[in-house]
Design a protein around this nucleic acid. Sequence first.
DNA 1: AATTAGCACTGAGAACCTTGGAGTGCCAGG
DNA 2: CCTGGCACTCCAAGGTTCTCAGTGCTAATT
Lengths: 337, 337
Amino acid sequence: MLDERKLAVLRAVVEDFVNTNEPVGSRALADRHPLGVSPATIRNDMVALEEDGYITQPHTSAGRVPTDKGYRLFVDRLSSVKPLSAAERRAIESFLGGAVDLDEIVARTVRLLAQLTRQVAIVQYPSLTRSSVQHVELVPLGGQRIMMVVITNTGRVEQRVIDVLGSVTEHVVDDLRAMLNRAIAGKHLGDVPDAVEDLPAQVAPEDRPVAVAVLTVLLESLVERHEEKIVLAGTANLAAVDFAASLREVLEALEENMVLIRLLGEAKDPSMLTVRIGAENFHEGLRSTSIVSADYGVGNQSLAKIGVVGPTRMDYPGTMGAVRAVARYVGQILAGQ
Amino acid sequence: MLDERKLAVLRAVVEDFVNTNEPVGSRALADRHPLGVSPATIRNDMVALEEDGYITQPHTSAGRVPTDKGYRLFVDRLSSVKPLSAAERRAIESFLGGAVDLDEIVARTVRLLAQLTRQVAIVQYPSLTRSSVQHVELVPLGGQRIMMVVITNTGRVEQRVIDVLGSVTEHVVDDLRAMLNRAIAGKHLGDVPDAVEDLPAQVAPEDRPVAVAVLTVLLESLVERHEEKIVLAGTANLAAVDFAASLREVLEALEENMVLIRLLGEAKDPSMLTVRIGAENFHEGLRSTSIVSADYGVGNQSLAKIGVVGPTRMDYPGTMGAVRAVARYVGQILAGQ
DNA sequence: AATTAGCACTGAGAACCTTGGAGTGCCAGG
DNA sequence: CCTGGCACTCCAAGGTTCTCAGTGCTAATT
């Protein structure tokens, strides 16, 4: 059905259209690509490609434009991930190297990715539920309040202020802290609820209300949807593209964190690339965009996702290369933290 | 020079232009506003207003449009801050009330403000340098590393990982923690450098390297530009406006944190409103935007800024009302934290 | 059977013109 | 000082024409 040459024609159509953003005709194709055949032959191939739904004409007597299906074939079979240049690698390293804490790592990563791809970059904070407790700190604030700080092995810090009925003695807090750390330090967050279940029974009855209050807040803070935390950069790059759907819709979708989370999709192995093209994204406003995403993490453990959103007519090989490279570097940096 | 009626005409021009986004003519003005004079009279007034630079014509035989100077006069003398409706107040309260930590307060505030004004909202994190130390926590991470967590009275949490040469005993960390808290708890961050100056002298010589390492990182983390931290929301609202300058330029400016910080300007009293109109903003890309900003804080102490960026033809009274109200609520919530 | 040259046909978009109408400035009269 | 009237201006919308890139088809060629 699709012989070698037709595939070459499709690849050429995609590449030219990505470059020029104009429907590409048979003559231009024959000029710019060494296909070794005349425009007429290319036209015949194009008819076949169009019948199979890989390309389409905006109107009669215009050139061809790839469809979502065409891009899909291109990504799956006609292109390969383009490695970054040495200069780009150095830039990543020096740019991410200087970060001092998790917030800064994430902030720099997202800006870097936006700059490399000249598109909108998305970075998700390392998942809480998949990381483990490094340390729990309890600080009496005076009066009837305690501040709790949970530190995870991925560098994330969660803090809460706890209101307790009755006064709090330094002593009780010390005991509670020691007991808590003994129970859950090193544990996966998912295992924390089980691990603390019988703690209240171990404290003196008069201190039990305080212990319960602390545990309640602790569990609460772990249950909440912490995958929500997401950072964007490079929205200005959208202005350069002319979207079929209005720019407004795209921007709106990008501001909805829940949409972004679904967009990035389920966790996989670190640095596995996922590409969603056009209508493959369920969201209305993102019909004319594609998403290239990857997991990052330490070792085989995926912690979260990073990704890039751009027009369907994007430079897939280059974008995929940038996303993969950045995901790997972030993983390394988190591991070294 | 500018009698009562001319001012009324200017006010009417601004209001109509904000509503319709079309140059307003003398007839339309006479119809929609009870000025009590004929279009011809209004025309004469308009000529005067134009000579003084308050309004301008896009071209001959078009209506008038306010200039930056016209908006300035409108804001200063012809309008008053519009209080929010009861429903809006309730919405603010319930929306901000549910926040559990500082990150969430800020995130919700910025989204709320964007929604209320239908423009781009900016919220700056509470300044570190103007707050004081609530507590310093040191956690041995095992090996040669210590995690430091600084908690401020505004709910901000700064964390750093410290590499120390040589091993760290639990005991040393406990001592150091106690000593540090004795020295700086309750102190303004600005006073911390002085307060810790002679601490190294107080520790045993063999522990001095650790103490120095910790203090170095502590001071570093306080010196850094923490005013930088800024959050945006509502960029989708920009798409609805057609900017004279390209949308891209505006988006780019908004992504530059340093630009935003300068934009929000110097600190003042809490809930003092500042309005910068068009070219009053020094930044190139923001020539056709206005910024309404206010300080928020607890008591008389300003902690940071919030603001709104929109087209110069914005609803100033409404925007000012929303910004002021939100600034006050945030202050209250921080005070209650 | 596959490829190519030739050719008539199509439709978008640029260039041009026409026209309607909102809005102006000015003047003379109230 | 205000107002009605009037000639004038110029944008924007609609219509027409023209160009041209690109097509599909057919017949000739390899």
